[in-house]
């Protein structure tokens, strides 16, 4: 199986450790991973904000970069959603039949990390060790569009030493929402503050999620409030073999 890592522009620049964790994790499970260096961005920020024309070249370059792989694995539920659900819309919008065809070819091969581990590789115990209490935030895209369900939970429950704590109101949006976070910053912050209020009430040491975008927002609020709770991507926990540094 030829596996590509779709890092996402976000993780590339702000959270490179998440990409490194995915590589470590998949290597440990016996799989080679390639990183097609032509990849840039899936176009989600443009698409969701209404800049559909500007999105077309990004979809085109995505398909070129990832052509020929059996599986394209991403540590982002929301970017995986963009490719799987919306690239087709953008391709049709472009009126370019060859783009429609290449999207039909490439998009279905994109997997969010936990989907790939559980559904394709068939593992839930990835041999990780992480002796900390963790609250998991199931992001909206992973819940409602990718419908990855309890896969991240099953993976976390199998991690040695990890205590999974219930996050009240877990399925409610954290308030990030892409450009919503800046275009409606006050509402976004109000939603995020309620979320971290619930989080702090659990006493968890770590907040984990399948999307660093939500974690950037929640982590940014926690950091401003000088909270000791750390935010970590699911991949970093699954790649871990001991206590957090």
């Amino acid at each position: 199986m030829k596996i590509a890592l779709f890092i996402t522009c976000f993780n590339d620049l702000l959270y490179p450790d998440v990409g490194k964790a995915v590589v470590r994790l998949l290597n440990r499970l016996g799989h080679e991973v390639e990183f097609p260096e032509d990849q840039t961005c899936c176009g989600q920020i443009h698409f969701n904000t209404g800049y559909r024309d500007e999105c077309v070249p990004l979809v085109r370059s995505f398909d070129q970069a990832f052509d020929g792989f059996d599986a394209i694995v991403s540590p982002s539920a929301s970017c995986a959603t963009m490719v799987r659900h919306h690239h087709e819309t953008v391709a049709r919008h472009s009126g370019d039949a060859s783009l429609v065809a290449s999207v039909a070819e490439v998009s279905p091969r994109v997997y969010e990390l936990s989907e790939f581990l559980v559904d394709v590789l068939g593992v839930t115990d990835v041999g990780a060790v992480f002796p900390h209490s963790v609250a998991f935030h199931p992001t909206c895209h992973s819940l409602r569009l990718l419908a990855i369900g309890d896969r991240p939970r099953r993976l976390l429950e199998a991690v040695s030493g990890l205590e999974l704590v219930e996050l009240p109101g877990a399925t409610e949006c954290c308030g990030f929402g892409g450009t919503f976070a800046v275009k409606n910053a006050d509402t976004s912050v109000a939603m995020g503050e309620d979320k971290i209020g619930a989080l702090i009430g659990t006493g968890a040491e770590v907040l984990a999620s399948a999307d660093t975008s939500c974690l950037m927002h929640l982590g940014g609020l926690l950091s401003r409030q000088r909270s000791m709770v750390r935010v970590m991507h699911l991949a970093e926990i699954l790649a871990s073999t001991g206590p957090a540094r």
Binding site: I7, N11, D12, L13, L14, Y15, P16, G19, K20, F35, E37, A181, V182, K183, A185, V189, G192, E193, M216, H217, G219, G220, L221, S223, R224
Partner: peptide, 19 residues
């Protein structure tokens, strides 16, 4: 608008692609 109530992680010294 982002920074009024939130911090941001500093962009990584080495991006993933450089690494």
């Amino acid at each position: 608008a982002w920074f009024r109530r939130r911090d941001l992680p500093a962009p990584a010294r080495t991006s993933f692609r450089r690494w």
